[in-house]
Computed example of a mutant assay.
Amino acid sequence: MSVRNRFGTAAAIALMTTVGAVLLSACGPDNSDPGSTAAPSAPGSAAPGTAAPGGGSHSGSPAPGGKEINGTSTANHLTISTGTKTVAMNGTTVDFGTVVRDLAWSPDGKKAVFVNGDGDLMTANADGSGKATLAKASSGDAWSHPTWQHAAKGPGGDSVPNETERYNNIVFTSSKDGVLRLESVPAKGGAVAEFTPSNSEGGDAGTEPQPPKTGNTWANAGGQQAEIAYANTPAGEVYIYDDYIRPATRDIGKGSQPALSPDGNQIVFVRSVNGHDHLFTRSTEHDKKAEKDLTPSATTDYTEPAWSPDGKTVATRTPDGISTVPADGSAAPTQVSTIKGLPSYRP
């Protein structure tokens, strides 16, 4: 059974108390700013780099007895976007006032980036307010799965302000005329450009083999030096692209839907085994290629993985909702939510 294509799929939200629910510690998306609730707004777009009128609002309420709902809490940072106007987070749901597909978070957790109902790229604050349209998709161009590329530290661990700004970009998938490719736009707004992984030319063996330019999809940023993991659909391969010092693209192996750990040292991806989609992890280092199957006894499909901020847990989508599994493979997956959507962790 191959990985399902769930881009842009809207799912109904089911509000249920999850196994192991805890007391709800906050009703809003941001504990540090309890007064940031904004009024609801009608769906709409704004000019690039400008805020859309209005903001978002909180919807939903704690389960009876004040217990956590949706499998999300301030403690675990998990959020779930479902292709509707609401996003599950902090034990409640937040109304963004517009359709939210394929939500991802900025490195500091203050901003979300997503594809709206018109297929355009938008950013917003964590409470759904401050919406801004980064880029509008042209006719026939379908955008999906944005990720926030960033660089915070140099190879020696030093902060690099110039590089931090240079790599403050949104990388996403474009599908036009049946051709997949990666594109990018500055996170502060600007022109959309093709994002083309490559290898440096030269060296003892002459020109390095170049990775495919088309068929690329599912970009996911990680680490501290602007690394991007992505999948190539025709080849069925997972790659990591890093041009911090020089352009270099590594073939990780067979798989799809990759995600880089927060420190960039691990990668998780999906691979079909015996009729089900399994989750595999491996080190991103060149000399460490051993893979670990996190779901060796899978009787269902585990897809669309996401790393927790501490790198200890992987959240994954299943046909029944969202499950989590220890990143070291020390335990079997546990269902934490019946909401069917894309899991993402807010830093």
Rank of each mutant, 00 (worst) to 15 (best):
residue 16 M to S: 15
residue 38 A to C: 09
residue 54 G to W: 02
residue 20 G to A: 11
residue 35 G to P: 03
residue 52 A to Q: 06
residue 55 G to V: 03
residue 42 A to Q: 12
residue 45 S to Y: 02
residue 43 P to D: 09
residue 15 L to T: 14
residue 43 P to N: 09
residue 45 S to T: 08
residue 39 A to N: 03
residue 56 G to T: 03
residue 31 N to H: 06
residue 57 S to N: 06
residue 58 H to K: 15
residue 54 G to P: 05
residue 25 S to W: 08
residue 27 C to K: 00
residue 33 D to V: 14
residue 21 A to L: 06
residue 32 S to E: 13
residue 33 D to W: 02
residue 52 A to P: 01
residue 22 V to N: 09
residue 17 T to Y: 00
residue 46 A to V: 04
residue 55 G to I: 01
residue 23 L to E: 08
residue 17 T to F: 01
residue 32 S to W: 09
residue 43 P to R: 09
residue 24 L to Q: 12
residue 58 H to F: 05
residue 45 S to D: 08
residue 31 N to P: 12
residue 24 L to M: 14
residue 58 H to D: 10
residue 55 G to Q: 00
residue 53 P to Y: 02
residue 17 T to R: 15
residue 47 A to C: 09
residue 52 A to R: 11
residue 45 S to P: 00
residue 43 P to G: 11
residue 52 A to C: 05
residue 32 S to T: 13
residue 53 P to K: 01
residue 49 G to I: 13
residue 54 G to L: 08
residue 27 C to V: 02
residue 44 G to D: 05
residue 42 A to M: 11
residue 53 P to D: 07
residue 35 G to N: 14
residue 47 A to Q: 07
residue 31 N to K: 07
residue 58 H to V: 10
residue 58 H to G: 12
residue 23 L to S: 12
residue 58 H to I: 15
residue 50 T to H: 07
residue 34 P to T: 08
residue 19 V to M: 11
residue 20 G to L: 12
residue 47 A to N: 01
residue 19 V to Q: 08
residue 21 A to R: 02
residue 18 T to D: 15
residue 44 G to P: 03
residue 16 M to V: 14
residue 44 G to L: 04
residue 42 A to P: 05
residue 21 A to F: 12
residue 31 N to C: 12
residue 18 T to C: 14
residue 40 P to K: 03
residue 25 S to N: 07
residue 58 H to L: 14
residue 44 G to E: 07
residue 36 S to V: 05
residue 49 G to P: 11
residue 55 G to W: 02
residue 39 A to K: 03
residue 34 P to H: 07
residue 53 P to I: 06
residue 26 A to Q: 08
residue 40 P to D: 00
residue 48 P to H: 13
residue 36 S to C: 01
residue 47 A to P: 02
residue 47 A to G: 04
residue 18 T to E: 15
residue 45 S to H: 01
residue 16 M to T: 15
residue 29 P to N: 08
residue 43 P to I: 03
residue 35 G to C: 08
residue 54 G to C: 07
residue 50 T to P: 00
residue 57 S to F: 02
residue 22 V to F: 04
residue 28 G to R: 01
residue 47 A to I: 01
residue 19 V to I: 08
residue 15 L to I: 03
residue 45 S to F: 04
residue 56 G to N: 05
residue 36 S to F: 10
residue 21 A to S: 15
residue 21 A to G: 04
residue 41 S to R: 11
residue 27 C to D: 02
residue 36 S to P: 00
residue 53 P to L: 01
residue 22 V to T: 15
residue 50 T to I: 02
residue 45 S to K: 06
residue 35 G to F: 09
residue 46 A to N: 09
residue 21 A to Q: 12
residue 47 A to K: 08
residue 40 P to Q: 03
residue 24 L to W: 06
residue 47 A to S: 10
residue 30 D to K: 00
residue 36 S to N: 13
residue 25 S to Q: 11
residue 26 A to R: 06
residue 40 P to N: 05
residue 25 S to V: 05
residue 39 A to C: 01
residue 32 S to V: 14
residue 57 S to H: 06
residue 48 P to R: 13
residue 54 G to K: 05
residue 31 N to A: 14
residue 33 D to F: 10
residue 32 S to G: 11
residue 29 P to H: 13
residue 22 V to L: 13
residue 35 G to V: 04
residue 30 D to Q: 03
residue 37 T to R: 13
residue 20 G to S: 13
residue 54 G to A: 10
